[in-house]
């Protein structure tokens, strides 16, 4: 068992109960994506946590509850809801890119509906906000976007669409105070590529995302929340 495994097993109970703090959770999620043994251990405890909820005594809701709820679940309402979300072909993939792009698309709709939908999407994973910034070459030419999510586990997704040579690159985060944190590798083929990962610290504590070549030289940079 690796050191990472030991760390994750140590906090498996908190992960299963959903009470691990943001940094621990982000690190653990990164490890769980790759380790089937730890994933099975956490899933087993998660099933215990889920079963504990059955202990709450059942209680009949107020009169009329069933009718009101059933009425709100009519197919017409779902079609309207889906129509807003599935306007983007990538939403079905449930990728980080889809979530961020969905937020952008929502901006074209009615503001109040946008705010409501946005809050609902964020609430799914205790999110606070989405963010998007341009990724630029030193000369200011835009080559892609950085999408960020501030939530119980924060993440960053980089999308390159033009202007960067094919090859293997690394994404690096810069935190407040200048600390540099590796994020993940990014492959560019035919001048396009994308990569993302959970961040080891909250997104709101990041100031910059850098795209580095194999020698560690900065190729492009994104100043966050400018």
């Amino acid at each position: 068992m690796s050191t990472d495994c030991e760390r994750v097993r140590e906090i498996a109970a908190e992960l299963a109960l959903g009470i691990a703090d943001g940094e621990d959770r982000a690190r653990a999620l990164e490890h769980l994506a790759e380790c089937t043994g730890c994933r099975a251990a956490v899933e087993r405890l998660s099933s215990v946590a889920d079963e504990l909820l059955l202990l709450a005594p059942a209680q009949e809701p107020p009169p009329g509850f069933e009718g009101r709820v059933a009425e709100s679940l009519r197919p017409a309402a779902r079609r309207a809801w889906r129509g807003r979300r599935l306007a983007l072909p990538v939403v079905a993939a449930l990728s980080a890119a889809a979530l961020a792009a969905g937020a952008v698309w929502f901006a074209l709709g009615d503001d109040r509906e946008l705010a409501d939908s946005y809050r609902q999407e964020l609430a799914v994973a205790n999110g606070e906000y989405f963010d998007a910034s341009s990724l630029e070459l030193p000369g200011g030419e835009k080559v892609g976007y950085i999408y960020g999510y501030q939530g119980r586990a924060s993440w960053v997704l980089a999308l390159i669409y033009d202007g960067v040579d094919d090859g293997t690159y690394r994404l690096e985060l810069v935190a407040e105070g200048g600390e540099k944190l590796p994020l993940t590798e990014l492959e560019i083929a035919r001048e396009e590529g994308s990569a993302g990962a959970a961040t080891p610290i909250d997104y709101e504590r990041l100031t910059e995302v850098r795209l580095l070549d194999e020698r560690g030289r900065e190729v492009a940079d994104s100043e966050l929340r400018e």
Binding site: A56, A58, Q59, P61
Partner: peptide, 9 residues
């Protein structure tokens, strides 16, 4: 509904 409402209460 009774289970869901019971847990929420």
């Amino acid at each position: 509904q009774a289970r869901v409402f019971g847990l929420a209460v």
